[in-house]
Structure formats: structure tokens, C-alpha cells
């Protein structure tokens, strides 16, 4: 899922400093699961902003709503009537949600409450880790199911580099060296010979470097 985290509340308050009434929109998708922008977080943020503004003698009126998914324009349409009389919309979705809202409500000031961080999972409750760099050309079959693109700090395809020591990456003793993990797993699978093959340069045009991407499935398109 997409992992996001709330921005510092001061920054969010700053974005809506000149507004009297705002709509805070949570999302029931990924950000609910990663506890950044679900119903609860939306209400907490609304209360915190209200308190903050009352302390400044400049009360803020808030309306809250949680969309089923902000990454689907059809779910955004469901909030049309809530939007009318607010000065701004604060989205607690990933960047996709913020953009769809901004697209639909041209004349509204739309701001992000979250920093969209990465694609990952949660190993234990409260800890999320990055697992995929969305490279558009998955190589996990060549690396024992461990992603070298995002879990190696240098995205090395023929690792490990000379900074790998005691299982950790050169950037931090808290970061596992992906290539140590790949080595261990390939060894356990009896496939170390695979690691002797020189992996060719990656085609980054399938990643963000090729410009904005689109995925199309003609067979499921309507009309």
C-alpha cells in the first residue's frame, strides 16, 4: 500500500491561514490502513486545527468527510455538496487524492495534509517499511525476491558494494544491506551462480525517468 505520514500541523495551519471554513477529507484506502488519513486522523486534525485557531482568536470552522477512495474520481464526486461553502479543502489522502480533488474543484484551494512517502507494508503495528520503487520492470525473480532498486541505497544491480558490512548498509546501522539479504537467500536456494551473471543496465524509461506513465487495459474500458 501507499504509506503516508501527516505533515507538521503548523505547516498545515499555515496553508489555510486565511480560511474561515475548511473541509477535511480523509480516505478509506491505504492511508486509513497506515493510520495517516482515515476517519480518526481526519477528526483529530480537524480538532487540533480548531483549537489552534481559537487560541489565535481566529476561529476556524471545519467539516469532515471520508471518501471511499480519493484515487477514484467517482468517489470524489460524492462530496460535491460539502465543498460549496468552504474556503479550502484539506486532503488527507496520498498525492493522488489531493490531485483528483483539485482537478474536480477548480476554484477551490486544495492542500495536502500528508507527505506521501513510499510503497511498502507494515512488519509490525506502527512500523512501515519501503519495499518497492515502482521501477516498472520488476527484477525480483533475479534477486531472490528482494528488491535491489529501492532496498539498496544505490540501486545496484550487481551488488553488494564495498560499503556492506555486518549485514548493514553503509548509510546506517539501522538499514539492512539488500544485497546481503539477496546473497543469503540465493545461497539458501542454492542459486549463487545466478549472482555471477552480469546484470545489464536497467531500462529506466519504464520508471519515472520515461515521463508520466499510464497503464491501459483496452478490454476493460467502457464505451
Amino acid at each position: 500500500m501507499i504509506i503516508a505520514q501527516q505533515k507538521p500541523i503548523k505547516d498545515i495551519a499555515e496553508m489555510i491561514a486565511d480560511c474561515k471554513k475548511v473541509l477535511l477529507v480523509g480516505c478509506a484506502g491505504c492511508v486509513t490502513v497506515c493510520l495517516a488519513g482515515g476517519e480518526k486522523e481526519t477528526e483529530i486534525l480537524a480538532a487540533a486545527l480548531r483549537i489552534m485557531r481559537r487560541l489565535q482568536d481566529n476561529p476556524l470552522e471545519t467539516v469532515t468527510y471520508v471518501a471511499t477512495r480519493q484515487c477514484d474520481p467517482e468517489y470524489i464526486a460524492t462530496m460535491d455538496n460539502l465543498v460549496k461553502d468552504v474556503d479550502a479543502i484539506i486532503s488527507l489522502a496520498c498525492g493522488v487524492g489531493v490531485q483528483y480533488i483539485a482537478e474536480r474543484y477548480h476554484d477551490k484551494w486544495v492542500v495536502p495534509a500528508l507527505d506521501t512517502k513510499f510503497i511498502g507494508g507494515s512488519k509490525v503495528h506502527g512500523v512501515w517499511e519501503e519495499k518497492c520503487g515502482l521501477c516498472g520492470d520488476c527484477v525480483l525473480h533475479r534477486t531472490g525476491g528482494i528488491c535491489p532498486i529501492i532496498r539498496c541505497s544505490k540501486s545496484i544491480l550487481n551488488g553488494p558494494c564495498g560499503g556492506s558490512q555486518y549485514g548493514k548498509c553503509e548509510i546506517s546501522k539501522d538499514v539492512d544491506c539488500a544485497w546481503q539479504l539477496i546473497y543469503d537467500r540465493m545461497k539458501a536456494l542454492g542459486r549463487l551462480d545466478k549472482l555471477m551473471e552480469i546484470q545489464p543496465p536497467k531500462d529506466w524509461s519504464k520508471s519515472r525517468d520515461g515521463g508520466p506513465r499510464k497503464a491501459i487495459r483496452e478490454d476493460v474500458m467502457i464505451g
Binding site: 550487481n158 553488494p160 558494494c161 564495498g162 560499503g163 556492506s164 558490512q165 555486518y166 549485514g167 544491506c177 546481503q180 546473497y183 543469503d184 549463487l192 549472482l195 555471477m196 552480469i198
Partner: peptide
């Protein structure tokens, strides 16, 4: 780097 890990793979990577 003979001093990095995994040690057993360092020579293999040199060969690579």
C-alpha cells in the same frame, strides 16, 4: 574491498 561483507562473495564479485 576484501573487508566488506559477505566475505565469501567478495572474491566472486572481484571475478565478476
Amino acid at each position: 574491498n576484501p573487508f566488506a561483507d559477505p566475505f565469501e562473495f567478495r572474491v566472486a564479485r572481484l571475478e565478476k
